[in-house]
Simulated scan of single mutants.
Amino acid sequence: MARAPKSDAPGTQRILNNNVVIVVDDGGNERVLMGAGLGFRLKTDSVLDLELVEKSFVLESKSDGDRARTLLVDMPYEAVEAVMSAIEVAERQLKKDLGRRLPLAVLDHMNYVIERVRTGLQMAVAPMPELAILYPDEFAAATSMVESIGASLGVKLPPEECVFLTMHLLNTTRNQPDGTAAILLRRLQHIVVTVENGLGMTLDAGSADYARFILHIQFLLQRLTSGSMLRGSDSSFYQFAKHSYPRSFAVALAVQEYIAAATNQALTDEEVLYVTVHVERLTSRGVGPSAA
Protein backbone atom coordinates (compact mmCIF):
# COMPACT_ATOMS: atom_id res chain seq x y z
CA MET A 1 0.00 0.00 0.00
CA ALA A 2 1.47 3.29 -1.12
CA ARG A 3 2.46 5.94 1.35
CA ALA A 4 0.62 9.24 1.19
CA PRO A 5 2.11 12.18 -0.65
CA LYS A 6 2.92 15.22 1.43
CA SER A 7 -0.12 17.38 2.12
CA ASP A 8 0.43 20.49 4.21
CA ALA A 9 -2.40 22.79 3.03
CA PRO A 10 -4.48 24.15 5.93
CA GLY A 11 -7.74 22.30 6.52
CA THR A 12 -6.83 19.21 4.51
CA GLN A 13 -6.54 16.88 7.50
CA ARG A 14 -8.85 15.49 10.15
CA ILE A 15 -7.35 14.08 13.33
CA LEU A 16 -9.32 11.00 14.41
CA ASN A 17 -7.10 10.09 17.36
CA ASN A 18 -3.45 9.99 18.39
CA ASN A 19 -2.66 7.40 15.73
CA VAL A 20 -5.00 8.04 12.79
CA VAL A 21 -5.38 11.08 10.54
CA ILE A 22 -7.43 11.59 7.37
CA VAL A 23 -5.90 13.88 4.72
CA VAL A 24 -6.75 14.96 1.19
CA ASP A 25 -3.81 13.90 -0.98
CA ASP A 26 -2.41 15.53 -4.11
CA GLY A 27 -4.94 13.68 -6.27
CA GLY A 28 -7.90 14.99 -4.29
CA ASN A 29 -8.54 11.63 -2.60
CA GLU A 30 -9.32 11.25 1.09
CA ARG A 31 -6.60 9.03 2.53
CA VAL A 32 -6.35 7.44 5.96
CA LEU A 33 -2.85 7.68 7.44
CA MET A 34 -1.88 5.55 10.41
CA GLY A 35 1.13 5.52 12.66
CA ALA A 36 1.89 5.44 16.36
CA GLY A 37 1.65 9.01 17.64
CA LEU A 38 0.92 10.44 14.19
CA GLY A 39 -1.95 12.61 15.42
CA PHE A 40 -0.54 13.39 18.86
CA ARG A 41 -0.62 17.15 19.51
CA LEU A 42 -1.24 17.72 15.80
CA LYS A 43 -3.35 20.69 14.78
CA THR A 44 -5.40 20.87 11.58
CA ASP A 45 -3.04 23.47 10.13
CA SER A 46 0.14 21.60 11.13
CA VAL A 47 2.47 19.84 8.74
CA LEU A 48 2.32 16.07 9.11
CA ASP A 49 5.50 14.24 9.97
CA LEU A 50 5.41 11.62 7.22
CA GLU A 51 8.20 9.72 8.91
CA LEU A 52 5.56 8.57 11.40
CA VAL A 53 3.24 7.17 8.71
CA GLU A 54 3.25 3.36 8.88
CA LYS A 55 0.16 2.42 6.84
CA SER A 56 -2.29 4.21 4.58
CA PHE A 57 -5.29 3.57 2.35
CA VAL A 58 -7.55 5.65 0.14
CA LEU A 59 -11.26 6.05 0.86
CA GLU A 60 -13.53 5.26 -2.08
CA SER A 61 -16.39 7.66 -1.36
CA LYS A 62 -17.83 10.12 1.13
CA SER A 63 -19.78 7.31 2.77
CA ASP A 64 -16.51 5.42 3.24
CA GLY A 65 -15.10 8.51 4.93
CA ASP A 66 -18.05 8.63 7.30
CA ARG A 67 -17.61 4.93 8.11
CA ALA A 68 -13.88 5.35 8.62
CA ARG A 69 -14.34 8.22 11.05
CA THR A 70 -16.91 6.27 13.06
CA LEU A 71 -14.86 3.08 13.09
CA LEU A 72 -11.31 4.33 13.58
CA VAL A 73 -12.00 6.82 16.36
CA ASP A 74 -12.53 4.05 18.90
CA MET A 75 -10.86 1.00 17.36
CA PRO A 76 -7.62 0.14 19.22
CA TYR A 77 -4.61 1.07 17.13
CA GLU A 78 -2.97 -2.31 17.64
CA ALA A 79 -6.03 -3.92 16.04
CA VAL A 80 -5.91 -1.50 13.10
CA GLU A 81 -2.22 -2.18 12.64
CA ALA A 82 -2.73 -5.96 12.83
CA VAL A 83 -5.44 -5.88 10.16
CA MET A 84 -3.48 -3.63 7.81
CA SER A 85 -0.35 -5.76 8.16
CA ALA A 86 -2.39 -8.89 7.41
CA ILE A 87 -3.80 -7.27 4.26
CA GLU A 88 -0.29 -6.42 3.08
CA VAL A 89 0.72 -10.07 3.55
CA ALA A 90 -2.38 -11.17 1.57
CA GLU A 91 -1.42 -8.80 -1.25
CA ARG A 92 2.00 -10.40 -1.44
CA GLN A 93 0.51 -13.91 -1.39
CA LEU A 94 -2.02 -13.14 -4.11
CA LYS A 95 0.42 -10.91 -6.04
CA LYS A 96 -2.15 -8.17 -6.56
CA ASP A 97 -3.34 -4.87 -5.15
CA LEU A 98 -6.48 -5.62 -3.15
CA GLY A 99 -8.00 -2.23 -3.79
CA ARG A 100 -9.45 0.62 -1.79
CA ARG A 101 -12.54 -0.97 -0.26
CA LEU A 102 -10.97 -4.02 1.35
CA PRO A 103 -9.16 -2.32 4.29
CA LEU A 104 -12.28 -0.62 5.59
CA ALA A 105 -14.43 -3.74 5.08
CA VAL A 106 -11.98 -5.97 6.96
CA LEU A 107 -11.41 -3.40 9.71
CA ASP A 108 -15.16 -3.09 10.20
CA HIS A 109 -15.60 -6.86 10.31
CA MET A 110 -12.62 -7.58 12.56
CA ASN A 111 -13.60 -4.86 15.02
CA TYR A 112 -16.77 -6.82 15.71
CA VAL A 113 -14.98 -10.20 15.72
CA ILE A 114 -12.31 -9.13 18.20
CA GLU A 115 -14.94 -7.75 20.57
CA ARG A 116 -16.95 -10.96 20.21
CA VAL A 117 -13.91 -13.13 20.99
CA ARG A 118 -12.94 -11.09 24.03
CA THR A 119 -16.45 -11.24 25.47
CA GLY A 120 -16.77 -14.97 24.78
CA LEU A 121 -19.70 -14.59 22.38
CA GLN A 122 -19.84 -17.45 19.88
CA MET A 123 -21.57 -17.39 16.52
CA ALA A 124 -22.52 -20.59 14.72
CA VAL A 125 -21.40 -20.59 11.09
CA ALA A 126 -21.91 -23.43 8.65
CA PRO A 127 -18.60 -24.90 7.43
CA MET A 128 -17.80 -24.25 3.78
CA PRO A 129 -15.29 -26.88 2.62
CA GLU A 130 -16.21 -25.85 -0.93
CA LEU A 131 -14.34 -22.56 -0.51
CA ALA A 132 -10.93 -24.20 -0.25
CA ILE A 133 -11.71 -26.25 -3.37
CA LEU A 134 -13.10 -23.45 -5.53
CA TYR A 135 -10.83 -20.62 -4.38
CA PRO A 136 -7.66 -22.17 -2.93
CA ASP A 137 -5.50 -19.03 -3.28
CA GLU A 138 -7.99 -16.70 -1.61
CA PHE A 139 -8.76 -19.25 1.10
CA ALA A 140 -5.05 -19.70 1.86
CA ALA A 141 -4.58 -15.92 2.02
CA ALA A 142 -7.60 -15.56 4.31
CA THR A 143 -6.26 -18.30 6.58
CA SER A 144 -2.93 -16.47 6.82
CA MET A 145 -4.76 -13.24 7.65
CA VAL A 146 -6.70 -14.89 10.47
CA GLU A 147 -3.54 -16.41 11.92
CA SER A 148 -1.59 -13.14 11.59
CA ILE A 149 -4.27 -10.95 13.19
CA GLY A 150 -4.79 -13.41 16.03
CA ALA A 151 -1.06 -13.70 16.71
CA SER A 152 -0.59 -9.91 16.67
CA LEU A 153 -3.40 -9.39 19.18
CA GLY A 154 -2.73 -12.43 21.32
CA VAL A 155 -6.17 -13.93 20.69
CA LYS A 156 -7.28 -17.10 18.95
CA LEU A 157 -9.72 -16.15 16.24
CA PRO A 158 -12.40 -18.75 15.41
CA PRO A 159 -11.77 -20.83 12.25
CA GLU A 160 -14.98 -19.58 10.62
CA GLU A 161 -13.22 -16.23 10.14
CA CYS A 162 -11.37 -17.88 7.24
CA VAL A 163 -14.76 -18.15 5.53
CA PHE A 164 -15.67 -14.51 6.09
CA LEU A 165 -12.28 -13.16 5.02
CA THR A 166 -12.26 -15.38 1.92
CA MET A 167 -15.56 -13.83 0.90
CA HIS A 168 -14.11 -10.35 1.44
CA LEU A 169 -11.12 -11.26 -0.73
CA LEU A 170 -13.34 -12.73 -3.45
CA ASN A 171 -15.38 -9.53 -3.61
CA THR A 172 -12.10 -7.71 -4.26
CA THR A 173 -10.14 -10.09 -6.50
CA ARG A 174 -12.81 -11.54 -8.79
CA ASN A 175 -14.11 -9.56 -11.73
CA GLN A 176 -17.70 -10.33 -10.80
CA PRO A 177 -20.68 -8.31 -9.55
CA ASP A 178 -20.86 -8.04 -5.77
CA GLY A 179 -22.42 -11.13 -4.23
CA THR A 180 -21.74 -13.47 -7.18
CA ALA A 181 -19.42 -15.72 -5.18
CA ALA A 182 -21.88 -15.84 -2.28
CA ILE A 183 -24.74 -16.85 -4.60
CA LEU A 184 -22.59 -19.58 -6.14
CA LEU A 185 -21.67 -20.92 -2.71
CA ARG A 186 -25.27 -20.94 -1.51
CA ARG A 187 -26.34 -22.88 -4.58
CA LEU A 188 -23.44 -25.29 -4.21
CA GLN A 189 -24.31 -25.92 -0.59
CA HIS A 190 -27.96 -26.49 -1.43
CA ILE A 191 -26.93 -29.01 -4.09
CA VAL A 192 -24.65 -30.79 -1.60
CA VAL A 193 -27.53 -31.04 0.88
CA THR A 194 -29.80 -32.33 -1.89
CA VAL A 195 -27.28 -35.04 -2.74
CA GLU A 196 -26.71 -35.99 0.91
CA ASN A 197 -30.45 -36.21 1.55
CA GLY A 198 -30.95 -38.31 -1.57
CA LEU A 199 -28.13 -40.70 -0.70
CA GLY A 200 -28.89 -40.74 3.03
CA MET A 201 -25.26 -40.07 3.94
CA THR A 202 -22.86 -37.28 4.82
CA LEU A 203 -20.34 -36.73 2.04
CA ASP A 204 -16.63 -36.84 2.77
CA ALA A 205 -15.56 -33.26 2.10
CA GLY A 206 -11.91 -34.30 2.16
CA SER A 207 -12.14 -36.85 -0.65
CA ALA A 208 -10.93 -36.34 -4.20
CA ASP A 209 -14.35 -37.37 -5.55
CA TYR A 210 -16.00 -34.62 -3.48
CA ALA A 211 -13.55 -32.05 -4.88
CA ARG A 212 -14.26 -33.23 -8.44
CA PHE A 213 -18.00 -33.05 -7.78
CA ILE A 214 -17.78 -29.49 -6.42
CA LEU A 215 -15.70 -28.33 -9.38
CA HIS A 216 -18.11 -30.01 -11.80
CA ILE A 217 -21.10 -28.25 -10.23
CA GLN A 218 -19.23 -24.94 -10.30
CA PHE A 219 -18.61 -25.29 -14.03
CA LEU A 220 -22.20 -26.48 -14.55
CA LEU A 221 -23.53 -23.31 -12.90
CA GLN A 222 -21.15 -21.22 -14.98
CA ARG A 223 -22.37 -22.95 -18.14
CA LEU A 224 -25.92 -22.12 -17.14
CA THR A 225 -24.98 -18.46 -16.80
CA SER A 226 -23.19 -18.35 -20.14
CA GLY A 227 -25.81 -20.44 -21.98
CA SER A 228 -23.30 -23.12 -22.95
CA MET A 229 -24.71 -26.28 -21.36
CA LEU A 230 -23.38 -29.65 -22.49
CA ARG A 231 -25.48 -31.25 -25.22
CA GLY A 232 -25.15 -34.63 -26.91
CA SER A 233 -26.94 -36.38 -29.76
CA ASP A 234 -26.42 -39.91 -28.42
CA SER A 235 -28.91 -40.75 -25.65
CA SER A 236 -27.61 -44.26 -25.03
CA PHE A 237 -25.30 -43.22 -22.16
CA TYR A 238 -28.13 -41.28 -20.53
CA GLN A 239 -30.40 -44.32 -20.70
CA PHE A 240 -27.60 -46.57 -19.43
CA ALA A 241 -27.00 -44.34 -16.38
CA LYS A 242 -30.74 -44.05 -15.74
CA HIS A 243 -31.19 -47.82 -15.54
CA SER A 244 -27.80 -48.79 -14.08
CA TYR A 245 -27.65 -46.21 -11.28
CA PRO A 246 -31.30 -45.57 -10.34
CA ARG A 247 -30.53 -44.01 -6.95
CA SER A 248 -27.85 -41.66 -8.27
CA PHE A 249 -30.06 -40.82 -11.26
CA ALA A 250 -32.92 -39.91 -8.92
CA VAL A 251 -30.56 -37.66 -6.95
CA ALA A 252 -29.43 -36.00 -10.20
CA LEU A 253 -33.07 -35.32 -11.05
CA ALA A 254 -33.52 -33.73 -7.61
CA VAL A 255 -30.51 -31.51 -8.36
CA GLN A 256 -32.05 -30.67 -11.71
CA GLU A 257 -35.29 -29.71 -9.97
CA TYR A 258 -33.48 -27.41 -7.52
CA ILE A 259 -31.46 -25.73 -10.28
CA ALA A 260 -34.62 -25.14 -12.31
CA ALA A 261 -36.27 -23.50 -9.29
CA ALA A 262 -33.17 -21.41 -8.46
CA THR A 263 -32.22 -20.30 -11.96
CA ASN A 264 -35.37 -20.82 -14.03
CA GLN A 265 -33.32 -22.97 -16.41
CA ALA A 266 -33.60 -26.68 -17.18
CA LEU A 267 -30.56 -28.93 -17.35
CA THR A 268 -29.98 -30.85 -20.53
CA ASP A 269 -29.92 -34.66 -20.48
CA GLU A 270 -26.15 -34.48 -20.94
CA GLU A 271 -25.76 -32.36 -17.80
CA VAL A 272 -28.02 -34.72 -15.82
CA LEU A 273 -25.91 -37.65 -17.05
CA TYR A 274 -22.67 -36.16 -15.73
CA VAL A 275 -24.26 -35.24 -12.40
CA THR A 276 -25.43 -38.86 -12.13
CA VAL A 277 -21.90 -40.16 -12.76
CA HIS A 278 -20.40 -37.85 -10.13
CA VAL A 279 -23.08 -38.75 -7.57
CA GLU A 280 -22.46 -42.44 -8.18
CA ARG A 281 -18.76 -41.90 -7.43
CA LEU A 282 -19.71 -40.17 -4.19
CA THR A 283 -21.73 -43.13 -2.91
CA SER A 284 -18.56 -44.96 -1.91
CA ARG A 285 -17.14 -41.93 -0.10
CA GLY A 286 -19.79 -41.24 2.51
CA VAL A 287 -18.82 -40.94 6.16
CA GLY A 288 -22.02 -42.05 7.82
CA PRO A 289 -25.77 -41.50 7.87
CA SER A 290 -26.94 -38.03 6.92
CA ALA A 291 -28.10 -35.85 9.79
CA ALA A 292 -31.03 -34.69 7.66
Results as ranks from 00 to 15, higher is better:
residue 172 T to H: 04
residue 49 D to E: 15
residue 135 Y to A: 07
residue 120 G to Y: 03
residue 288 G to R: 05
residue 174 R to M: 06
residue 40 F to N: 14
residue 89 V to L: 10
residue 179 G to Q: 12
residue 73 V to E: 09
residue 260 A to V: 09
residue 124 A to Y: 00
residue 158 P to G: 10
residue 73 V to A: 13
residue 212 R to A: 15
residue 65 G to M: 12
residue 160 E to D: 04
residue 292 A to N: 09
residue 171 N to A: 14
residue 54 E to L: 11
residue 29 N to A: 13
residue 162 C to M: 11
residue 70 T to L: 14
residue 201 M to H: 00
residue 154 G to R: 00
residue 238 Y to N: 01
residue 106 V to H: 03
residue 217 I to A: 06
residue 256 Q to I: 11
residue 196 E to F: 09
residue 130 E to Y: 04
residue 271 E to F: 13
residue 211 A to Y: 01
residue 150 G to F: 00
residue 255 V to T: 03
residue 286 G to C: 05
residue 231 R to Q: 14
residue 237 F to K: 00
residue 114 I to D: 01
residue 204 D to C: 12
residue 54 E to P: 02
residue 55 K to G: 09
residue 98 L to A: 11
residue 47 V to G: 08
residue 257 E to T: 13
residue 148 S to R: 01
residue 5 P to V: 02
residue 158 P to V: 13
residue 265 Q to E: 13
residue 53 V to L: 08
residue 205 A to G: 10
residue 125 V to S: 04
residue 10 P to M: 10
residue 149 I to N: 01
residue 190 H to Q: 10
residue 63 S to R: 03
residue 143 T to M: 02
residue 171 N to M: 08
residue 49 D to T: 07
residue 250 A to K: 14
residue 105 A to K: 03
residue 59 L to W: 01
residue 75 M to H: 03
residue 105 A to H: 01
residue 144 S to Y: 02
residue 142 A to F: 02
residue 21 V to M: 08
residue 105 A to E: 10
residue 140 A to H: 04
residue 21 V to G: 04
residue 279 V to Q: 00
residue 137 D to L: 15
residue 242 K to Q: 14
residue 118 R to H: 07
residue 227 G to C: 09
residue 220 L to R: 00
residue 114 I to S: 05
residue 218 Q to S: 10
residue 138 E to K: 13
residue 165 L to F: 01
residue 195 V to Q: 00
residue 272 V to G: 00
residue 263 T to Y: 10
residue 265 Q to H: 07
residue 158 P to M: 15
residue 63 S to M: 11
residue 241 A to P: 03
residue 30 E to V: 03
residue 48 L to P: 07
residue 111 N to C: 12
residue 132 A to G: 09
residue 58 V to R: 02
residue 131 L to W: 03
residue 245 Y to N: 05
residue 16 L to H: 05
residue 112 Y to T: 01
residue 155 V to I: 14
residue 31 R to V: 09
residue 271 E to L: 15
residue 193 V to A: 07
residue 221 L to N: 06
residue 123 M to N: 04
residue 119 T to W: 02
residue 59 L to Q: 06
residue 46 S to I: 07
residue 183 I to N: 12
residue 35 G to I: 09
residue 90 A to I: 11
residue 206 G to C: 12
residue 239 Q to H: 08
residue 73 V to Y: 02
residue 122 Q to K: 05
residue 50 L to E: 10
residue 53 V to H: 02
residue 114 I to E: 01
residue 133 I to W: 01
residue 77 Y to Q: 06
residue 103 P to Q: 11
residue 98 L to M: 10
residue 233 S to K: 08
residue 91 E to N: 11
residue 246 P to E: 03
residue 227 G to K: 14
residue 149 I to L: 05
residue 88 E to C: 10
residue 107 L to C: 11
residue 74 D to W: 06
residue 253 L to E: 04
residue 27 G to P: 07
residue 277 V to A: 07
residue 182 A to S: 13
residue 99 G to H: 08
residue 246 P to I: 15
residue 125 V to Q: 04
residue 150 G to D: 00
residue 195 V to T: 07
residue 177 P to M: 05
residue 47 V to N: 14
